[in-house]
Simulated assay, not measured.
Amino acid sequence: MIPQQVENDGLTFDFEEVIEPSKNYKLIHEKDRCVGFIDELEAMKQAIFLILSVERYDHIIYSWNFGAEFKDLFGQPVSYVASEAKRRIAEALLQDDRINEVDSFVVTTKKNKVHVQYTAHTIYGEITAEKEVEY
């Protein structure tokens, strides 16, 4: 006997998936202040900044899926840091469900810093941002 696929086995679905709002407090970094609220694209810009500013595994208040790993790049050759920085930025940002893709990387080096410019494609739109990594 070959099992037949049953389309509806009498169960009713009494739930629906809801996307939570991304509303958050607005951080003003220059003044070390938290003023008002932001949502959607502005909240994503702030989330990207925070993800890339936190060293992964260093703070117990964040899950192991939050943050980026840049600390071990210090002292490495420039070519290694340039290629790894791109991969690690993409890996860190893609942990957020609201970010679909990270691409358009432009890498430049100055003295002891690698400057990475990239575009993050989110559910709210595109964000072009940058990150400096010291080596």
Rank of each mutant, 00 (worst) to 15 (best):
M1K: 13
M1G: 15
M1W: 12
Q4V: 11
V6I: 13
V6C: 09
E7K: 13
E7S: 13
N8W: 07
D9W: 01
G10F: 10
L11C: 11
L11R: 13
L11K: 14
T12H: 09
D14S: 11
F15P: 08
F15C: 12
F15D: 15
F15I: 11
E16H: 13
E16W: 10
V18T: 09
I19M: 12
K23F: 09
N24S: 15
N24P: 02
N24G: 06
K26P: 02
K26C: 09
L27K: 12
I28H: 11
I28A: 07
I28N: 15
E30Q: 14
K31C: 05
K31Q: 14
K31V: 08
F37H: 15
F37A: 13
F37N: 12
I38C: 13
D39P: 06
L41R: 11
L41S: 12
E42R: 06
E42H: 07
A43R: 03
M44N: 06
Q46D: 09
A47D: 09
I48L: 07
I48N: 04
I48D: 00
F49S: 12
L50H: 00
I51Q: 05
L52T: 07
L52R: 05
L52A: 09
L52F: 08
V54C: 09
V54G: 00
E55V: 02
Y57H: 08
D58R: 05
H59A: 04
I60K: 07
I61K: 06
I61H: 05
I61G: 00
S63K: 04
N65K: 14
N65V: 08
N65S: 15
F66H: 07
E69Q: 06
E69G: 01
E69A: 01
F70Q: 01
K71N: 07
K71V: 05
L73F: 10
L73G: 04
Q76A: 10
P77L: 08
P77D: 14
P77W: 07
V81D: 00
V81S: 03
V81R: 00
S83W: 02
S83R: 11
S83M: 10
E84I: 03
K86E: 15
R87P: 02
R87I: 08
R87E: 14
R87N: 13
R87K: 14
R88P: 00
A90W: 02
A90H: 04
E91V: 10
A92S: 11
A92T: 01
L93H: 01
L93M: 05
L94F: 07
L94P: 05
D96K: 08
D97R: 10
R98A: 11
R98P: 06
I99W: 01
N100C: 06
V102E: 03
V102P: 00
D103Y: 09
D103C: 06
D103M: 02
S104I: 06
S104G: 09
F105Q: 03
V106D: 11
V107Y: 03
T108H: 07
T109K: 07
K110G: 05
N112Y: 11
N112L: 11
N112C: 07
K113S: 09
V114H: 04
H115P: 01
V116Y: 04
A120Y: 03
I123V: 14
G125F: 07
G125Q: 08
E126R: 08
E126F: 05
E126V: 03
E126W: 01
I127K: 07
T128V: 13
A129E: 15
A129I: 02
K131E: 10
K131R: 15
K131M: 04
E132S: 14
E134Y: 10
Y135P: 01
Y135L: 10
Y135I: 13
